[in-house]
């Protein structure tokens, strides 16, 4: 087998950022505090913005700078703020010291979950490679990574049995879609992108209110009790 040829510096860097976004998704398997989970999501969004700036600079697409600014303003600042504010009263008072908040809500051990996540990510990787996509934006490998991000986000939502992580999983799924759009349609009209982002903000408010409702009734963020509600 001949050595794998090196990608260009741009493709390599863009792919590294895409893989970091995927790793942030894997990180959501284990965060023990709601605050850290939200921070991880904000970090993942910053990575999306960084990728948008990189693609914009290299492929001469200045509107991607605006997209990056909107991404940071909404996903890295506004959404975490709104989400934390909505859930303020659900956080236990001494969460910082005890580390008990949303810790240990995983349905399986962490190592097993990582293996499942890897299998799912591999499926995403190799199915997306089969798609005949040529890109004017981020390199095509990033598309495969984005499919993996979306699938792993599903695993996060299935694995974590607390409403907060499930909501964050849903938001980060949208990050995966943003990543895919940077590959498939980097020149998508800016208006559409902004509408999508504002839509997400709406989802955050709705989910935040639902989580509050759940917490008000069950006194916990865990969804373990909900299984007893079967009719």
């Amino acid at each position: 087998m001949p050595p794998a040829p090196a990608p260009s510096v741009f493709a390599g860097t863009a792919n590294v950022i895409a893989v970091l976004i995927l790793l942030a998704e894997f990180g959501m398997f284990r965060q023990a505090l709601l605050r850290d989970q939200v921070r991880l999501y904000a970090g993942q969004s910053v990575l999306i913005a960084a990728l948008a700036v990189l693609v914009g600079a290299v492929q001469q697409l200045p509107e991607l700078y605006v997209l990056a600014a909107v991404t940071i303003a909404l996903k890295a600042v506004a959404i975490p703020l709104v989400f934390r504010r909505l859930l303020r009263e659900t956080e236990p008072e001494h969460a910082e010291q005890t580390g008990h908040d949303i810790a240990g809500t995983g349905g399986l051990g962490l190592a097993s979950t990582v293996l499942i996540g890897l299998a799912v990510a591999a499926f995403g990787f190799f199915t997306a490679t089969a798609l005949p996509v040529s890109s004017g934006g981020a390199p095509v490998t990033a598309l495969s990574v984005s499919v993996s991000v979306i699938l792993v986000a599903f695993v996060v939502m299935i694995h974590r049995r607390d409403v907060a992580s499930q909501a964050i999983g849903l938001f980060s799924l949208e990050n995966g879609i943003s990543l895919a759009s940077l590959v498939v349609a980097p020149a998508l009209p800016l208006l559409v992108e902004v509408v999508l982002a504002v839509d997400l903000l709406l989802a955050v408010v709705v989910l935040g209110l639902l989580i509050r409702l759940h917490h008000g009734r069950a006194e916990t963020l865990s969804t373990a009790d909900l299984t007893e509600l079967r009719g």
Binding site: P7, N15, L23, L115
Partner: peptide, 24 residues
Amino acid sequence: ITEFAAAAFLLAVLGVFTLYLGGG
């Protein structure tokens, strides 16, 4: 410590994946 090893394993396996995709 298995979790630490799992994280390292994740990195190494993703490395091989990206190579198979041709973009690694």
